Each structure stands twice: as C-alpha cells, then as structure tokens.
Simulated scan of single mutants.
Amino acid sequence: MVVHTNAIVISALKYAEADLIVKCYTQKSGLKTYMLRGILKSRKGKFKASLFQPLTQLELVAKHKDKGSLEYLQDAKILVHYQTLHTEVVKSTMVMFISEMLKNTIHEEEKNEELYDYLENTFNWLDSHSDIANFHLLFLLKLTRHLGFYPEDSEKNLMYFNLLDGVFQHSKTNVYCIGGGLLNNLKLLLGTKFEALGQVKLSKPNRAELLELLLNYYQLHIESFKKPKSLTVLHEIFN
C-alpha cells in the first residue's frame, strides 16, 4: 500500500558498506523502518543521508507492507526546516539524547495522532526557544502521558511519590518511594507548560538528580528499557 505521510526521524543506522536503516515515527502508521540502499555512496541517488538526521520532520511517500518488516521509501523531503536544532551544540546534544529515548520507548506500528502532534509541537518549540536547560526533563515527563504511565497527580500534595505505582501517597511503602527535595522538584514540573519552562529554576545537581529519577521511572514501566548511551554527553554539556 502506498502511503503519503508526515514523519519524524528517530534514528539512522549504517548497514553494510553504504546502506542506512532508518526508523521514523509516522503520522499515519506509527513506527516504521526503512532500508535505504547505497545512500552513503551514491552522489546522484534520490536520497541524501542529511535528510535523516535525528528528529528531522519529513514528508514521505512509502510502500508499507505492514508486516513488521523493512518498508520501502519512494520519496522524502524536508517538511520543517529547523533553524537551530542541529547547529547549536546544546540543542544537538539534547536531540541525540531525545532521539535515543524515543528509540528505546516507542515500538508500536500503529497510528497515534496525539503522540505525533506532541512530538511535532515540542520539537518546533525547542527549535525556536533559547531557555531550554530543563526541556528534556519536561519532555520526558509529558511523554509518559502518551506512553501510559503519567503520574496520577490529583493528590500531589502528599509527602511521597511511589515510582512503581505512579501515585502520590502519605507514607513510604517500598524502596521506590521518593520524598523531600527531589519530590519537590518533580512537583515543579507537574502541570508546567513549555511556555512557562523558563520559570522552573533548578541547580545543575538538582537537574541531574531529577533526570536520573525520570530514567528510573521509565525503567520501571517499560520492559527492557535501556538508559541512553548519550546520557554521559548530556551531563557533560550541562556541567
């Protein structure tokens, strides 16, 4: 079936001598994987490798078999021309981290318009704003809503948050319960919109601690989740 769809590049992996295996999150079909033959050697081919940088937004024409196999890409062109996402060091490092997180968390080959819209809107926001030190924290927290384990925050005034169950509670009932300053920083993010992100003030140690908390939260709720290898680079950039 030939499909015309917008898509966001999740990853591009070199295969053999000149091929690329590209994962995209598509607006119409969810996660799809494409084999691009000879793209790294051909100068006159239809596709350029630069099209498939992480988080690039594309317009695709593709043949989808929808059988969990590699799909065939007929055409691709840039949908959104980012101004800063791939050129500013801090943002490009954040892009590397976020794309790896998406690769480790999104696996469904089915349409999810709300998730696609969330990714599209947040990446456009990141490209056009400069106060982004806490972007990755809010992005990961809000992403959990689309992945099915956003914290139940109706009682966020309580003293502990249970990472395992995703709820706030009166007392500590297991080793996955957090409280104190770390909990207060988590509460700062809950309910915050990206437009108000500049009002969230965190020290470097608090930011690193909160990121570790969110990654542990993901690890508890996503089977076989792996922490991104780019985490070390991210820490270096912010320190």
Rank of each mutant, 00 (worst) to 15 (best):
M1H: 15
H4V: 08
N6Q: 12
N6C: 04
A7S: 14
S11Y: 00
A12C: 00
K14Q: 02
Y15I: 01
D19K: 01
C24H: 03
C24I: 15
C24E: 04
C24W: 05
Q27D: 06
Q27S: 11
K28Q: 15
K28M: 09
L31P: 00
L31S: 01
K32F: 01
G38A: 08
I39N: 05
S42Y: 05
K44G: 14
G45D: 09
G45T: 10
L55K: 03
E59P: 00
V61L: 15
A62M: 10
S69V: 10
L73R: 05
D75V: 00
I78H: 01
I78M: 01
V80M: 00
Q83E: 14
H86Y: 08
E88R: 11
V90M: 01
F97V: 05
S99C: 07
M101K: 03
L102M: 06
K103A: 06
H107C: 01
E109R: 10
N112S: 06
E113W: 05
D117Y: 10
Y118T: 04
L119K: 00
L119C: 03
E120T: 00
T122Y: 00
F123W: 13
L126V: 13
L126T: 08
D127M: 06
S130A: 01
L138H: 00
F139M: 09
L143Y: 04
G148C: 06
F149W: 07
D153Q: 12
D153E: 15
S154E: 15
S154G: 12
S154M: 13
N157R: 09
Y160M: 09
Y160N: 11
N162V: 12
L163E: 13
V167E: 15
V167M: 12
F168M: 09
Q169M: 08
S171L: 07
K172Q: 13
K172S: 13
N174W: 05
V175S: 12
I178P: 00
G180Y: 12
G180D: 07
N185A: 00
K187R: 13
L188P: 00
L189T: 07
L189S: 04
L190A: 02
G191Y: 11
G198Y: 06
G198I: 04
K204P: 10
K204M: 09
R207H: 13
R207P: 07
L211G: 04
E212R: 10
N216H: 12
Q219T: 14
L220F: 09
L220T: 10
L220A: 11
L220Q: 12
F225H: 07
K226F: 07
K229Y: 04
T232K: 13
V233H: 03
H235Y: 15
E236P: 01
E236D: 10
F238S: 02
N239L: 11
